[in-house]
């Protein structure tokens, strides 16, 4: 088989990889904000839940989490009399998002803590409610601070999507595995696969840089 014949199936897989990356990064970012803000909450329950989530998902392996969600969760459901069987795509997105969200939560927490005390004093003096302070003062200042780390996490997430091939999701790596089984042309197929991931990572990095520039525009105006 000529290498160009590998392209259609690999590109089909690439589209799945892109979708997985986008969904899990967006969902992961939401989890990161929830847990990062939760960890700084004055509410003990919220704080405990956030800390437990972050520690469990940072303290164990992504593949363990993926397998647990896919293989073990349905059995846990059975024991509780619930149907917790989830399709591979849901298990994949959930595992990726939960994992990246736990790492992102620490980034969010750090960025929020980097906002200066004087900002909170000004917000209080102007009689902002805690919620207004969070949305109008804290988050807009913390987000540009998080962006470089979020960029790294997004690339990490793209790479991690390759693991979902292990629960038979038809991503790029899964397609490559199928091709290799069929043709035994390992060198060509894996070289192409590596280059495609590399290309996607470069594009993703550029996009995250663009986003970083956008949310941090006020920092650079007129300097």
């Amino acid at each position: 088989m000529h290498w160009t014949e590998y392209l259609p199936p690999l590109l089909q897989g690439a589209w799945v990889t892109v979708q997985l990356t986008v969904y899990s990064t967006v969902l992961g970012a939401m989890l990161a904000f929830a847990a990062g803000i939760g960890k700084l909450s004055r509410n003990l329950m919220l704080r405990a839940v956030a800390v437990a989530y972050i520690e469990v998902f940072r303290g164990t392996s992504l593949l363990v989490q993926l397998f647990w969600l896919y293989f073990a969760l349905p059995m846990a459901g059975q024991a509780l009399g619930l149907d917790l069987r989830i399709p591979p795509v849901v298990a994949g997105v959930m595992a990726l998002a939960l994992n990246i969200g736990a790492y992102g939560a620490e980034v969010v927490r750090g960025a929020i803590q980097s906002v200066q005390q004087g900002q909170y004093e000004a917000a209080r003096a102007l009689n902002f409610t805690p919620r207004q302070t969070l949305t109008a003062v804290t988050i807009p200042q913390a987000v540009p601070e998080m962006m470089p780390s979020f960029g790294n996490l997004a690339v990490q997430n793209l790479k991690d999507t390759a693991l979902v091939s292990l629960i038979s999701l038809g991503d790029m790596t899964f397609r490559a595995e199928q091709l290799r089984n069929f043709t035994q042309d390992s060198t060509t197929i894996y070289s192409m696969l590596l280059l495609m991931y590399f290309g996607m990572a470069l594009v993703l990095t550029a996009m995250m840089r663009g986003l970083e520039h956008r949310v941090g525009r006020w920092r650079k105006v007129g300097v």
Binding site: K159, A162, L163, T173, Y190, L194, A201, L202
Partner: peptide, 21 residues
């Protein structure tokens, strides 16, 4: 940069299947 931007599992497959060739 290439090592950093490509998945571990693919690098592993590459080494596992390509090195013997």
């Amino acid at each position: 940069e290439f090592l950093r931007d490509t998945p571990l599992i693919v690098q592993l497959f590459f080494l596992y299947y390509v090195l013997p060739e």
